[in-house]
């Protein structure tokens, strides 16, 4: 009964909240607009926006030394999570069955183990850093911890479900993932989409001045 609800209506509801929520948040941001800059630009902002969209994925050397742990843990977590989400066999099967109608090549078991360990280690390191470093401790909000905890629980339940092939664990994983989808648009997790907007604005603004941001 509960399993049917999690597998059925709650999945569709959470997917709809996620999709509509993300679109609503993006529209809410963009509709505020920006004042037209009347200064004469040195170069087009479009190229700068595109350049910064990609260049900020690489660390700037001057802060690489001091922020080494965050960069390494950040890459481990984000790349690991991306691989888990889109290349783990159960996920590809789920996406194929429920959304796309087609699948693609999945990670072998050893690859799955590797990326899941990297993602776990990265997430835990980032969380520890957030808890222990005076700067992140000061600036972090409840939402930052809530998002980290929810992502951790989703990943943990997913790994347990795969290891034990036990239906209640699969349902627990799906339930947590659905909660994550519902929470996503209203949390800092939105950075997964808004990063493109913020990088674009900064890249364009700086390119107008002739600075490679």
């Amino acid at each position: 009964m509960i399993g049917d609800f999690i597998d059925g209506p709650l999945w569709y509801f959470s997917a709809a909240v996620f999709l509509l929520g993300v679109i609503w948040r993006l529209i809410a941001i963009l509709r505020i607009g920006v004042t037209v800059d009347l200064s004469v630009a040195r170069s087009s902002g479009a190229g700068g926006a595109l350049r910064t969209l990609f260049s900020r994925s690489l660390p700037r050397r001057p802060v690489l030394t001091r922020g080494k742990l965050q960069f390494v843990a950040g890459y481990m977590f984000h790349l690991g999570l991306f691989a888990l989400l889109f290349l783990a066999q159960p996920h590809v099967e789920f996406i194929s069955r429920r959304i796309t109608g087609f699948g693609w090549t999945t990670l072998p078991h050893w690859g799955f183990m590797l990326v899941s360990e990297a993602a776990f280690a990265g997430l835990l390191l980032l969380l520890l850093y957030r808890l222990m470093h005076p700067v992140t401790r000061l600036i972090s909000r409840a939402g930052d911890y809530a998002a980290s905890l929810l992502v951790f629980l989703v990943m943990l339940s997913g790994c347990l479900a795969l290891a034990r092939a036990y239906e209640p664990l699969r349902l627990l994983h799906l339930l947590l993932a659905e909660l994550l989808l519902i929470y996503f648009p209203f949390s800092t997790l939105m950075h997964a989409f808004t990063f493109a907007v913020s990088r674009g604005y900064t890249g364009a603004g700086m390119a107008r001045k002739g600075v490679n941001a």
Partner: peptide, 29 residues
């Protein structure tokens, strides 16, 4: 608070890396 500001606050994950670029933080901790 324009679209730029709103996108910036929506994106911030409070990683604290900006502190490592600021001489006020770097020199005083």
């Amino acid at each position: 608070i324009d679209a730029r500001v709103s996108s910036y606050f929506s994106s911030c994950v409070h990683c604290g890396l900006c502190a490592e670029a600021c001489h006020f933080h770097v020199e005083t901790d």
